[in-house]
């Protein structure tokens, strides 16, 4: 690799900081960084972030998750756990209570749903959740993002690879 593009360098800076770049490439990258002020500036930031390290994981979280997963695997029949898990407030509802509540909801909601549905099936929240959980529908949690400074994610997503490449070049990366 005689000529190294800045884009290639900056993409690999996190790996360089993590010591995951092969020795021969390390030399080439170091050489480029010594000659390119823009890449060097970026390297400074990446190196500092690596030095600071990621946010520490709270002590006890792993054990709490083990307990939660055990809870899922061994949920008891006869009572339902709603919105809860180990370490958090739970509401235990007896089976007859759920049945009664379901009856009330059906009685109230069915006429309204039938009126609104017509012939088309109306997806319920559960349907959506199941699709997300199964990977059939990746969540799009960013649709209401009001602070995307990059002139709107939708604009970026609509650009071709070539256009994105040009944008990066113009950014000096």
């Amino acid at each position: 690799m005689n000529e190294i593009r800045c884009a290639d360098i900056v993409d690999r800076l996190p790996a360089l900081a993590a010591g995951q770049v092969e020795a021969t490439d390390v030399d080439l990258m170091r050489q480029h960084l010594s000659e390119c002020a823009s890449c060097r500036d970026e390297w400074t930031v990446v190196e500092l972030l690596h030095e600071a390290g990621p946010a520490p994981v709270p002590a006890g979280l792993e054990a709490r998750l083990h307990a939660a997963v055990r809870d899922v695997a061994g949920q008891t029949v006869g009572s339902s756990v709603v919105g809860g898990a180990p370490g958090r407030k739970r509401w235990r509802v007896p089976s007859w209570g759920l049945a009664a509540a379901a009856g009330i909801v059906l009685a109230v909601a069915t006429p309204v749903l039938v009126e609104r549905m017509g012939d088309a099936p109306v997806p319920t929240i559960d349907d959506v959740e199941i699709e997300i959980a199964l990977g059939e529908r990746l969540p799009s949690p960013w649709l209401d993002d009001e602070e995307d400074v990059v002139a709107g994610a939708a604009v970026l997503d609509g650009l071709s690879d070539e256009a994105l490449e040009r944008l990066l070049e113009e950014m000096g990366g």
Binding site: S140, A153, L164
Partner: peptide, 26 residues
């Protein structure tokens, strides 16, 4: 990109925008 709901290219641009902004703030 899959996690933030963007294309691969847009994820790369978001990363570089972020680094550039940090560089400016620093």
């Amino acid at each position: 990109g899959a996690l933030i709901g963007s294309s691969e290219g847009a994820a790369r641009v978001n990363y570089h925008h972020g680094i550039r902004r940090l560089r400016e703030k620093m």
